[in-house]
């Protein structure tokens, strides 16, 4: 799941290869261009990939600022 999430994030943020290699589980994605505008693209891709719908109250950039946090969010909705 982490690899798929990473793939989505790299694609939506349009990261160059060098930057993409730096993304680890706890990398701060805000330093790589994650903000409220790019986050909508991440959410839509996650929802499509994992068959989930994220509630409005969880739609916060701060909930998606690392790969780990995104994984937690997806797992919450997969259950």
């Amino acid at each position: 799941m982490e690899d798929k999430i990473k793939e989505i994030v790299i694609s939506v943020l349009e990261l160059a290869e060098d930057d993409a290699k730096q993304i680890e589980e706890d990398t701060d994605l805000l330093e790589y261009g994650l903000d409220s505008m790019t986050c909508v693209g991440v959410v839509v891709s996650l929802e499509e990939e994992f068959g989930i719908t994220v509630d409005e109250e969880d739609l916060l950039v701060e909930n998606m600022s690392t790969i780990s946090k995104i994984k937690e969010l997806v797992e919450k909705y997969e259950d």
Partner: peptide, 8 residues
């Protein structure tokens, strides 16, 4: 309607 950022 958008994803919010408390910090922003």
């Amino acid at each position: 309607f958008t994803v919010k950022s408390a910090g922003d």
